[in-house]
């Protein structure tokens, strides 16, 4: 079908974008890569919303190392995540996740900020943020605040963002010496949303495993993580996922299949980080 947009303005800079957002009182949305938003507009699922296009806001782009954090601008495209040396070196989980997102033509447009704000429970990047314990940098009329990924993803397609706030960047702790990371997923066809996926961050101080596609938000498998840290075998840890994850039955796969796939992925990811 055809999009139904109620209006469109190109933001010149970040203050302009925020002031438009504030003035619109929740009736406008930020247009970043548009790879989910324009599809929703075309399907008439997004309502008739006005659009604030931030694609020209240069300060939202770029990847830089700031102390022990990698700061990734909200407008960074998936293609840039996949090809960035800084990402590959310091947060390999994101470098591994980026090529799994949709297809080349979509990765050329889709952005990390858009993916996080949309909060699809089967998306890779929200789970990366959770596993990496990243902070989401959010700005609104009252200024900037940082939200830990664990507090950001509230429910299905629902985040901690207020209606007059937008994501400006994420700050991701860089891998420490001896740390290994793995992002894996299982999908019926390349580029589909995953039936189940895992982001495993295996630090000397402890392991963090975030799953996607198996609940309303990305989920930290705290039971399995604690077991692994106590020295449990991959099989023993995988058995505990039943208590950590709440997959639902849907048209793509029954809950039991998703849980099974999550167990397979945990074993594979551990084999990858501990080989």
């Amino acid at each position: 079908m055809k999009a139904a947009a109620a209006g469109y303005i190109r933001a010149n800079d970040l203050p302009h974008a925020i002031s438009l957002l504030e003035q619109s009182r929740g009736e406008a949305r930020i247009l970043a890569g548009g790879q989910s938003l324009i599809a929703s507009l075309n399907l008439r699922l997004a309502g008739e919303t006005a659009l604030i296009d931030i694609n020209g806001v240069a300060e939202l782009s770029g990847i830089e190392l700031v102390g022990e954090q990698l700061r990734i601008g909200a407008l960074t495209r998936h293609r840039e995540l996949a090809s960035s040396d800084l990402v590959a070196r310091h947060v390999p989980a994101i470098a591994q996740a980026a090529p799994l997102i949709a297809h080349a033509a979509i990765r050329n447009r889709g952005t990390i900020g858009g993916s996080l704000a949309y909060a699809d429970p089967a998306a890779e990047l929200p789970a990366c943020m959770l596993a990496l314990d990243a902070q989401i940098v959010v700005r609104g009329p009252a200024g900037e605040r940082r939200v830990r990924a664990g507090d950001f993803f509230v429910d299905l397609f629902t985040t901690d963002l207020a209606e007059d706030e937008m994501i400006v960047a994420v700050e991701v702790p860089v891998a420490v010496a001896g740390e290994r990371q793995a992002t894996m997923e299982l999908a019926r066809r390349s580029g589909d949303y995953a039936l189940a996926g895992i982001v495993l961050v295996d630090r000397p101080s402890g392991v963090r495993a975030a799953f996607f596609g198996v609940g309303p938000t990305p989920i930290l498998a705290t039971g399995a993580m604690a077991a692994i840290d106590r020295g449990a075998s991959p099989d023993e840890a995988a058995a505990l996922l039943e208590g950590d994850l709440q997959p639902l039955d849907d048209v793509h796969a029954p809950a039991a299949v998703r849980l099974h796939l999550a167990r397979v992925l945990l074993r594979r990811a551990l084999a990858a980080t501990r080989s």
């Binding site: 296009d53 033509a105 447009r109």
Partner: peptide
């Protein structure tokens, strides 16, 4: 993918960009 074309040297989905952009 039937609408795939090139914008600024990169392939994109023509249905997922607005002309206004």
């Amino acid at each position: 993918g039937a609408c795939t074309l090139q914008v600024d040297g990169e392939i994109v989905r023509g249905c997922l960009m607005l002309a206004a952009q």
